[in-house]
Write a protein that binds this DNA or RNA. Structure first.
Lengths: 132, 132
DNA sequence: CGTTGAATTTAGAATAATTCTAATTCTAAG
DNA sequence: CTTAGAATTAGAATTATTCTAAATTCAACG
């Protein structure tokens, strides 16, 4: 996770700042289209392509992350600390959760896959409180 | 995971059988389009819509699963036992891995999310052997 | 300051991914 | 054999994302 100073050093353009702030200020995970709609509120002339470009850029810089659980459009999430997700198999609701993954797990995963590990994330599939 | 007998009891149509077999026989995770192309080899008149319908049906029956790591089309994976994924952040390569998740973890995840838990899956992001 | 050039943004077109529609075919039950 | 519901088909429609080419921004340079 980047510090405020590091973010400032990136010299974000006006558009990228707006896209980032929209995501940072949202409680929900937003689709690209929702980011676009909200960004227009702050910067009416912003284009769809710029939103996508900005999302890609911000993702590469590690300021946001993209999640997709196989039903429709990708969603964008602010990048705080490492965290996990829970997704409701009935209504699709997506929430962030924070678990303490045992160190052992990442070693095990790296060993089994033979990948050089970067990060580990867990997804719980279940039923949210609203869906009973 | 369903037994052979249970699968037979579903009375799958010709098309659904073909789609299922394509996925079962593939070492790789396939996109809907790849499933379509391969299915055509076995059943030349099969349509794209049927492939999508079949994928949805088979997923609902728990015979296959859909994964999407936020870059392009969803991929379909045969449903064997519970398993996890590793994805290469450089080339996008996706492999199945099998980890022993501590029982404790699912309880923790359920508690944090307040969801009634169904399944838990872990994703390792890293660099695959080919990408160094 | 003017010029230059790289990076970014813009509007809209193009492509890719997925779902829908309406007509037809299949299948199992009466 | 009928009939009704489910599944399939071809192709259109919709949604999601990326591309293109022209315009803009902005910093570095003379």
């Amino acid at each position: 996770m980047k510090s405020t100073t590091e973010i400032e050093e990136l010299g974000l353009t006006k558009q990228r700042k707006v896209v980032l702030s929209v995501i940072m200020d949202s409680k929900e995970h937003l689709t690209a289209n929702e980011v676009f709609e909200l960004s227009k509120g702050l910067l009416p002339k912003i284009s769809f392509a710029t939103v996508y470009n900005s999302l890609r850029y911000l993702k590469e810089e590690g300021l946001i992350s993209e999640v997709n659980f196989g039903s429709g459009a990708s969603k964008y999430d602010r990048m705080t600390d490492r965290h996990d997700h829970a997704i409701c198999s009935s209504c699709g609701k997506l929430v962030d959760i924070r678990l303490d993954l045992p160190e052992e797990l990442i070693r095990q995963a790296a060993k089994h896959s033979k990948f050089r590990p970067e990060s580990l994330e867990l997804t719980l599939r279940g039923t949210c409180p609203e869906c009973k």
